[in-house]
Design a protein around this nucleic acid. Sequence first.
DNA 1: ACGCTAATGGAAACCGTTGTCAGATTCACC
DNA 2: GGTGAATCTGACAACGGTTTCCATTAGCGT
Lengths: 340, 340
Amino acid sequence: MSNAYNRPDQLSPELRRRVLETARRLGYPGPDPVARSLRTRRAGAVGLLLTENLSYAFRDPAAVGVLEGLALACEDASVGLHLVPASPGREDVAAVHRAGVDGFVVYSVPDDDPHLAAVLERPVPTVIIDQPSLEGIDRVGPDDAAAVGKIAEHLVGLGHRQVGVICMRLARERNDDFVSPARQSGAHFHVQRTRLEALAVAFSAAGVDWAGVPVVERFDHTVDDGASAARQLLDAYPQITAVICTSDILALGAMAEAERRGLRVPQDLTVTGFDGIAEAERIGLTTVHQPVLEKGKTAGRLLLSSGERSAPKVITLPTELRIGRTSAPPRTVEEPWFGG
Amino acid sequence: MSNAYNRPDQLSPELRRRVLETARRLGYPGPDPVARSLRTRRAGAVGLLLTENLSYAFRDPAAVGVLEGLALACEDASVGLHLVPASPGREDVAAVHRAGVDGFVVYSVPDDDPHLAAVLERPVPTVIIDQPSLEGIDRVGPDDAAAVGKIAEHLVGLGHRQVGVICMRLARERNDDFVSPARQSGAHFHVQRTRLEALAVAFSAAGVDWAGVPVVERFDHTVDDGASAARQLLDAYPQITAVICTSDILALGAMAEAERRGLRVPQDLTVTGFDGIAEAERIGLTTVHQPVLEKGKTAGRLLLSSGERSAPKVITLPTELRIGRTSAPPRTVEEPWFGG
DNA sequence: ACGCTAATGGAAACCGTTGTCAGATTCACC
DNA sequence: GGTGAATCTGACAACGGTTTCCATTAGCGT
């Protein structure tokens, strides 16, 4: 019977025809995928864990790009992509245990997330994206530190010394406010922590006291949140000449807020982003482009080929500084008469 | 053993502790999800079939919205979302058979797609979105005909009689060109066919000869494709006063093309879209808004509750005409001296 | 007609879990 | 000490396929 469906060549066409005919007559719907998976020990799917609430994942073009790349890799291998339902709120780790998959991709979850721990307990290969390396686990990610360094270098080169930062959430507990140094260094989101640290290093090297640089955090990741963060930042520190955002979405919000308060970008205020999403490119945002689609695709390929090697692999993707129309030297507010 | 994991209340805490302890010592990774699914006859996942090549699905904000809604519904029910790898090219129907899911959601595939047929053969509940009703199958979708009618009414009311249409693919075979009446009426994508038919009805009622209205089709669905379609349309029919697009993405492209050739929107050319995506709203595109997130969420809920009822359900979602800054009365090119 | 090989069909074991059920053990209480 | 309830143990039969293995048959040459 099994042969009739799976290996038409192993038996005579006549028999096969008769078997399938009878099967249809009896209303047999074809082999059950679950039973087949049990026996063959292949689920034919890879799991994707992203603990963010889903509106984040689907509304951030960078995340959608990763998703797309991963889906492409899965499609190439004729393997399904199983989105694990992991709301950030309730700790529904059972969903991880219930997922019938041959491996996991973990994307941008906090390092203390119980879902991540549950994934690592499962006896299947795992690839993590944008996370710190874990013992024996494959990893894909851009060189965040270097990428942020390019931005910082660019701004320092332009002459900016009074800067402010807007970043995404740093931990699972909400904090829509300025960020203390302790929270910065103890951030559980690896990407955000790395970017802040790299900024600290670069600006300190340029003689800027990092402890004096205000950092505003937003839990949610929307254009509006970027705008409100910029408002909070500029209300408290009007002397700031450049707003550094750790994502393009936040930068779009900062731009909107700048326009709202009559600041011209880049003459009055420089705004930079991170990711290089399409909309940012369209409006000419200065940002660091990272190949999000490649990120997902590489992770998928890595996972699907993980049977073939033993040593874990770490792949670092290139990034590129894209100078747009939103960065310029700071206005010399202290000595405006010098400008002529 | 099973009890220790699944029903902590049925046995004493002490025993449970001991069992789990021993399990860990033996390196037992917890119950196997596939075997469990086989036994319990619940896969804990719903399948999503969208035959489009994936770059379409993830780059069209409307599709991403549906995906997000569906994912939200799944999350609510603690059920995974399984993306079935169904490339449009190779007819890999086996992927549908291999998917271990409790039901399917089918979104916007052509009605003659073999994957769709394969889904319907599976003995699991199915919900279709934006497709013609099928015997005994749940369905979710907007009232496309009425929605398009609103657009047509709006344009007719403004005085447009010379219009052109840009639409998405009508069949699985590529045709990046003008569309013959036969292809229009035989379109395999239900949504597109419905919209064209509704336009035909509305404009015919206004005294416009529909056979004389040019319709340009594009297989891919990007802003650039919208631009090239507009170019083809306006090159051949420069007298057109309004370009009706069956999606916002295409309309964005048409706007870009209008700008490229120095046409002011809406003074020289009216452009309308369909879907009501965020970017369209930001630039003030005249369009019909449909609740894409609701569409996905409703489909998911319907599927997950389909055990509770017998009669299939058809849910029609409301749409809303959003008049923006891209539609205005046509310029009276025939008699320019009348204008003063 | 016989023996050998190759092809074919059918039976049985197995994948890892859950559900049921009978029997054993413990414990409290009369 | 006997009784009943509560709890625990162990065995076993599905779930629905795939895979292995063996018995049978067909084909063929001598």
